[in-house]
Computed example of a mutant assay.
Amino acid sequence: MNREFADRVTRIEPSATVAVSNLASQLEADGVDVVDLSVGEPDFPTPDVVVEAAKDAMDAGHTGYAPSKGIPELRAEIVDRLGERGLPYDEDQIIVTPGGKQGLFEVFQALVDEGSEVVLLDPAWVSYEAMAKIAGGDLTRVDLTDHEFQLEPALDDLAEAVSDDTQLLVVNSPSNPTGAVYSDAALEGVRDLAVEHDITVISDEIYDRITYDGVKATSLGSLDGMEDRTVTLNGFSKAYSMTGWRLGYIAAPDDIVDEAGKLQSHSVTCATNFVQHAGVTALRECDEFVAEMRDAFADRREMLADLFADHDVDVPVGDGAFYMMVPVDDDDQQWCEDAIQEAHVAMVPGSAFGAPGYARLSYAASEERLREAVERLAENDFL
Rank of each mutant, 00 (worst) to 15 (best):
R3W: 09
D7S: 15
T10W: 07
R11W: 14
E13D: 12
S15P: 13
V20G: 06
A24L: 08
A24R: 09
Q26P: 05
V35C: 05
L37S: 01
V39Y: 11
G40F: 11
F44P: 00
D48N: 08
V51A: 05
A54N: 11
A57R: 06
A60R: 11
T63G: 07
G64F: 08
G64P: 05
G70H: 05
P72T: 13
D80L: 12
R81P: 06
R85A: 11
G86A: 10
I94W: 00
I94S: 00
I95M: 01
P98K: 15
Q102R: 14
L104F: 11
Q109H: 15
L111P: 10
E117L: 03
D122L: 13
Y128S: 05
E129S: 09
A132G: 12
K133A: 10
I134F: 12
L139E: 01
L139H: 02
R141V: 04
R141W: 03
H147M: 10
A161V: 04
D164M: 06
T166Q: 01
V170Y: 01
N172L: 10
P174V: 00
T178L: 01
L187V: 00
G189K: 05
V190M: 05
H197R: 07
I202E: 03
T211D: 07
Y212W: 02
S219K: 12
D224A: 06
D224I: 04
D228Q: 14
T232M: 05
F236R: 04
A239E: 06
Y240L: 10
Y240M: 09
Y240V: 02
T243M: 11
T243F: 14
W245P: 08
L247C: 08
P253F: 01
D254K: 08
A260D: 08
G261Q: 08
K262F: 14
Q264T: 08
S267I: 11
V268H: 12
T269S: 12
T269V: 15
T269I: 15
C270H: 15
V275K: 00
Q276V: 14
Q276F: 07
A278L: 07
V280F: 04
A282Y: 08
L283P: 06
C286S: 14
D287H: 11
M293V: 06
M293Y: 10
D295Q: 10
D295L: 13
F297G: 00
R300Y: 02
R300N: 06
M303Q: 08
M303K: 07
M303V: 08
F308S: 01
A309D: 08
A309W: 06
D310Q: 10
H311F: 07
V313W: 04
D314V: 13
P316Q: 11
G318P: 11
D319K: 15
G320P: 09
Y323M: 12
M325C: 10
V326H: 04
D330F: 08
D330V: 04
D338T: 12
Q341D: 15
H344S: 13
H344A: 09
V348N: 04
P349L: 05
P349A: 08
G354R: 02
A355L: 02
A355H: 03
P356D: 03
G357V: 03
Y358R: 02
A359E: 04
R360Q: 07
Y363M: 06
R369G: 01
R371Q: 13
R371E: 14
R371V: 15
R371I: 12
E372F: 03
V374A: 03
V374T: 07
L377Q: 04
A378P: 08
E379F: 10
E379Q: 12
E379I: 07
